[in-house]
């Protein structure tokens, strides 16, 4: 916001106040009306979240962010943004989800390929819109020309090669599938921007900008996945990975609540997060094993077996995964292997 207003001042100074019309000086502002409105906007550009969409340059009020431990999606690079309407801010709520004002939006673009330029191919952008009657989740699919993304209510599939070199049929979720993950007790909610999974630096910077009311206690406590080292303790990494990749369904009120498996970071009961827990409705996902986690025995642990599969009916997560996250599997395998 401040950046944009200072631009405006500069422009006014150089051009003279009489010429300072918004359409001359800068890009249109983010379209608050379509965020708060009723329908499903047909194009990503309708929101004006970006000044240069191809390069994901955020518009005024759009704040980039990153997560300490991100959700893995076939190795896609993810560009994450929070939009806050003018005059609003986020509110801290302990280590949990930041509280968003009505009119806010969360934007996540999925990309494959190197760098930030022409070699990077934008595949889809998912938006969460905070409307007066709750959150709405919508998927947008990028066109071949990479000029805009179009509403993909029914999702779709894109053939691509992952950074690991696997050729896959990448699945863009449909609108309902967005909710499958983004839901608790039947309501659509954000998942990612929990204070514990955001860096202290980012939280501090947001407070400085006036975009967050205060630095939350318990912010930044999840380990950094990208900066992890082989010598790091196994449990925090594995539990953070499971929290971020699995717990949106595997928690009370989540999509997989009936399994009784609760993989949230804060769950302290070993049986609840899988140790010597029998499967409920795993079917062939059980892989002829008896327990979700057998301490010391990753090869006898259903949880790892399902993470390590890309076959529908066995693979976990059920959505947003067409290949195996070998690094995630390795981290969870080490945790189970070292477990007494």
């Amino acid at each position: 916001m401040r950046f944009a207003s200072s631009l405006l001042l500069l422009a006014c100074a150089s051009l003279g106040a009489g010429l300072a019309q918004a359409d001359v000086i800068g890009p249109p502002r983010v379209n608050d009306a379509v965020i708060r409105g009723e329908g499903f906007p047909a194009r990503l550009s309708d929101f004006a979240f970006f000044t240069q969409a191809r390069f994901q340059m955020p518009n005024a009020g759009v704040h980039p962010y990153a997560l300490n431990t991100p959700l893995w999606s076939d190795g896609a690079e993810k560009l994450r943004f929070i939009y806050l309407p003018e005059g609003t801010q986020l509110a801290a709520d302990g280590e949990g989800l930041l509280k968003f004002p009505v009119g806010a939006a969360i934007i996540k673009t999925f990309a494959f390929g190197e760098g930030e330029g022409e070699d990077r191919r934008l595949i889809e952008t998912r938006v969460l819109l905070h409307r007066a009657d709750g959150w709405v989740a919508l998927p947008y699919r990028w066109n071949a020309e990479q000029t805009d993304a179009v509403l993909a209510l029914t999702g779709g599939r894109v053939d691509l090669t992952t950074p690991a070199g696997e050729a896959i049929s990448y699945a863009i979720p449909n609108k309902n599938q967005c909710k499958s993950c983004h839901s608790k007790d039947g309501q659509v909610i954000p998942i990612g921007p929990k204070a514990r999974n955001l860096s202290a630096e980012w939280l501090g910077a947001m407070v400085k900008q006036g975009a967050l009311d205060k630095v939350p206690a318990g912010g930044g406590t999840l380990p950094s996945w990208r900066a992890r080292k082989a010598s790091d303790p196994a449990a925090p990494l594995a539990r953070a990975y499971l929290d971020v990749n699995c717990a949106h369904c595997h928690q009370p009120g989540g999509g997989a609540s009936n399994s009784g498996l609760d993989l949230r970071w804060e769950q302290a009961d070993p049986h609840a997060f899988g140790i010597m827990k029998r499967p409920v409705a795993a079917g062939r996902g059980a892989g002829n094993m008896d327990f979700a986690i057998v301490p010391g025995h990753p090869e006898q642990s259903i949880l790892l077996y399902r993470m390590d599969s890309a076959e529908p009916g066995i693979a976990m997560p059920e959505l947003g995964k067409s290949s195996v996250d070998h690094e995630g599997v390795a981290a969870v395998r080490r945790w189970i292997a070292e477990m007494k």
Binding site: S180, P312, S322
Partner: peptide
């Protein structure tokens, strides 16, 4: 030829 999801049809 199903490639994804845990069931054929999900009703919520």
């Amino acid at each position: 030829g199903q490639q994804g999801a845990g069931e054929g049809l999900l009703v919520t």
